[in-house]
Design a protein around this nucleic acid. Sequence first.
DNA 1: TTGTACGCGTTATCAC
DNA 2: GTGATAACGCGTACAA
Lengths: 345, 345
Amino acid sequence: MQITLKDIARESGYSVTTVSRALAGYDDVNENTRRHIATIAETLGYQPNLLARQLRNQRTQTIGLITPAPDDDVGSEFFSQLLLSLSSAASRVGYDLLVSAQSAGEPEMAAYRRIVGGNRVDGMILARTRKHDERIAFLKSLNHPFAVNGRAAPDEVSDFAYIDVDSQAGIRAAVEHLTGLGHRQIGLILPPPEMAFTEFRHNGYCEGLAAADLPYRDEFVRYGDLMQSGGYMHANALLDQHPQMTAIVACNDLMALGAMSAAQARGLRVGYDLSITGFDDIPAAEYAHPPLTTIHQPMHEIGKLLVKILDSLIRGESTEQTQILLSSTLVIRASTGRRKGGADD
Amino acid sequence: MQITLKDIARESGYSVTTVSRALAGYDDVNENTRRHIATIAETLGYQPNLLARQLRNQRTQTIGLITPAPDDDVGSEFFSQLLLSLSSAASRVGYDLLVSAQSAGEPEMAAYRRIVGGNRVDGMILARTRKHDERIAFLKSLNHPFAVNGRAAPDEVSDFAYIDVDSQAGIRAAVEHLTGLGHRQIGLILPPPEMAFTEFRHNGYCEGLAAADLPYRDEFVRYGDLMQSGGYMHANALLDQHPQMTAIVACNDLMALGAMSAAQARGLRVGYDLSITGFDDIPAAEYAHPPLTTIHQPMHEIGKLLVKILDSLIRGESTEQTQILLSSTLVIRASTGRRKGGADD
DNA sequence: TTGTACGCGTTATCAC
DNA sequence: GTGATAACGCGTACAA
């Protein structure tokens, strides 16, 4: 079935050991035997058994990632992008990517135990940090290498490797962009409260209002679910209760898109009657109708950096900088525009 | 470092063999010892070493997928979707997904040799079939289980497990939709000629024209690259050479989106002055401006079926139907509309 | 320069 | 019921 070192040994007359070293390119093996062995390996079509090698070396050259099961379809667009950027970044530095989709909670933790404890990967990538994140606690307790997309919440310590965009500054910039356009009644649709980045975005909103001397109103703020349906629902609720509202800041693009639908269903023209901003800059944002003003996340860069940091962690080179905060960029498109109508408050 | 059967054996006083069988739930082990051993395993936090188990069992419970490296950024949206749907489908039936991103050609084939030959997976999923597909030939020669998203080209035999949508009927439906709207000058932007499905789509186009008694014109047909930039370029070329053209059929959504940009840059109103259709129904299609008429691919379904077929292949249950052709659905949105202007040809 | 012996952690076979 | 032994395929001290 499968060609092993033993087969090459038998064929060549050398021992398995010598064959192993010859193919590994050790210099303590005669050049002629090396060539001889290499030829036989070639003609036999030898492929090293990676499982055996991994077991022996205690090294898998594999990075793990647990994605949310799409039943609780949380931001599949975001994860798709991350997945693709990670897999290519990983391949480039000699790692494969092991992916498992699990629902948050016990199934997810079981997968971590199984994959990490089962020695299937050299390191893990996490995304979507949560408050008091159980996954992070677990990996830290095991001292297993991991890198995270997203810091801990503001009131926790981020004593782990991460890369994050400064979403506080991002949302603040979005709000300032809106106030600069004359908006004074600005709603906010947050991510779920258990997400670590939720408070950063909330803070950014507060800062943006303060910078324009606008009051903070609790009833303008709602916690969403990162999905379109949530954006739709919460935008409707905001507009029902506060018809005078002229702008809504949604904390991810999916919710912003949902909010756009809600507005349009009410006959509001997005970018005129109502301004809407998102976060992430997924592909659909650019093609949205109208194109969505949003905060760009450089997914390609993020994937590359995550892999780079994780690799250095795995190799024990702690020279690398392991905590990186990328500045965020507001991409202004047509979903935001100058406030219409006279002065009001 | 890691807890092994040996540790539990030492702790419990039983042999490694008994521990192994106790934990595996064999019934030839005393219920009391079983419980005893289970308790110790629990308190020690035992996790079986999956590599050792896989090596021993010659079974990995892992499915492999090689994606295109995003440098040759061919349809990343499509692959993102596939990836996510595969990983969740795989997890549901007890498989993990091993992903590696490789550029087509030698690097890609090397990855197949390494991953398949190296025993890292029980089966592979392929996508984007090509004419005389080297990957398929390789896997067939090894008799390694695999399932493909996409048939072979019309003039080749598809003697392997696949699931495909009937894109010939799909494109035909798109063309008939357009002719029904009065369009008579319909351009076509095909996938690259080396893709297996290109001819199906080309045929569908011809059928659609024939059904409306319209002549086929070679100069209306161009081969694209599945990327936006290609759609943009080819749409411009078509409109430059044939200003009287009122509709363009693009063979995937990305190219359709690119074509839309090109049209709009020329001051054409998509859906009025120029109708455009796509293929795939990626998320961005729905949000496009205007929303894109396109042929829907049920990615979720496709992923589920691919995994199901592959699983049955791996387990040697050839009872399953292994070649499935899904009917395609035309989703009509606002990017297509009735032809404007008087009669011409 | 090459070979022998052993272990990575698991499970299957076969005795007792 | 339980345990010793072997094997999955590889890499590496150590000896020759």
